[in-house]
Amino acid sequence: QAPETKIVDKSRVACDGGEGALGHPRVWLQIPEDTGWVECPYCDCKYVLKGSKADAL
């Protein structure tokens, strides 16, 4: 199944896999201003900063 994409309001987000005990260790991710998105290294969930150029795609 394809990784999930989430639109977020802040450039710093936490990801834990979203499945409680079945998820992964919580990691904090920083969305770079130049790209407007970041992917979780564990679950490949893509976080897109709302209003960024990546959000316009």
Rank of each mutant, 00 (worst) to 15 (best):
C40D: 06
P32N: 08
P3F: 12
V48D: 02
R12F: 14
P25H: 08
V48A: 01
C15L: 00
S11Y: 10
A2C: 15
T5N: 06
Q1L: 13
Y42C: 09
I7Q: 03
V13C: 08
V38W: 00
V8Y: 00
D16P: 03
P25F: 10
L29G: 01
C43Y: 05
S52G: 13
P25G: 06
G20K: 04
T5W: 15
A14V: 09
G17D: 05
D44Y: 15
L49D: 07
C15M: 00
D34C: 08
I7G: 01
G18D: 05
C43W: 06
E39Y: 15
Y42S: 11
V8C: 09
L49M: 07
G20C: 06
A2F: 11
V13N: 03
W37I: 07
K46Q: 06
P3K: 15
K50F: 04
Q1W: 14
R26Q: 09
G20D: 07
G18F: 08
R26V: 12
K10M: 09
E4H: 15
T35E: 08
Y42L: 14
C45Y: 15
S11F: 08
I7D: 07
G23V: 09
L29N: 02
G17E: 03
D55A: 03
I31Y: 02
K6D: 06
P32S: 07
K50P: 08
G20Y: 03
Q1A: 12
A54T: 05
V38T: 06
A54P: 05
D9G: 03
D44T: 15
P25M: 09
E39W: 14
L22W: 06
L49T: 09
V38R: 00
E19A: 12
Y47Q: 03
P32L: 08
E33D: 07
I31H: 05
H24E: 04
K10S: 14
E19W: 06
T35F: 04
K50C: 11
V38K: 03
R26W: 07
W28M: 07
T35M: 08
Y47T: 03
Q30V: 12
E39P: 00
E39F: 15
G51F: 03
P41D: 02
T5R: 01
C43I: 01
I31E: 02
R12P: 15
A14W: 14
T35A: 05
E33I: 12
D9T: 14
V48L: 04
D16H: 07
D44F: 15
L29M: 07
P3I: 12
G23Q: 13
C45P: 01
L57A: 14
E39N: 11
D44A: 15
G23F: 08
W37M: 07
E4D: 13
S11L: 12
K50L: 08
E33H: 10
Y47E: 08
S11M: 10
I7T: 05
P41Q: 06
C40H: 07
D16A: 07
D34K: 09
G18I: 03
V8D: 07
K46Y: 06
A54R: 00
V38L: 04
E33V: 09
C15V: 00
P41Y: 03
V48W: 03
L49C: 08
T5Y: 15
A56R: 12
G18C: 15
T5V: 15
P41S: 05
V13R: 00
T35H: 08
G17Q: 02
G20W: 03
P32M: 04
G20V: 04
P3G: 13
C15T: 00
A54M: 03
R12I: 14
K53R: 09
D55F: 00
P3E: 11
K46M: 08
E33N: 05
Q1F: 13
D16K: 07
C43H: 05
G20Q: 03
W37Q: 05
C15N: 00
A56P: 14
W37P: 01
P25T: 08
G51S: 04
Y42W: 10
V48M: 04
C45G: 15
K10T: 14
K6Q: 11
E4P: 14
T5S: 09
V13D: 03
A2P: 12
H24S: 01
P3R: 14
E33W: 09
P3L: 12
P32K: 04
A54W: 03
S52M: 02
G23S: 14
E39M: 14
G18P: 13
P32A: 07
G23T: 10
W28E: 03
P41K: 02
E33Q: 10
D34T: 03
G18M: 13
G23E: 10
V48Y: 05
E19M: 07
S52P: 02
C43K: 00
P3S: 14
E19Q: 09
S11P: 12
P41M: 03
D34P: 03
V27M: 04
S52F: 06
K53S: 11
T35S: 09
G36I: 05
D44I: 11
G51V: 04
L29E: 02
C43A: 00
A2V: 12
K46R: 14
G17T: 01
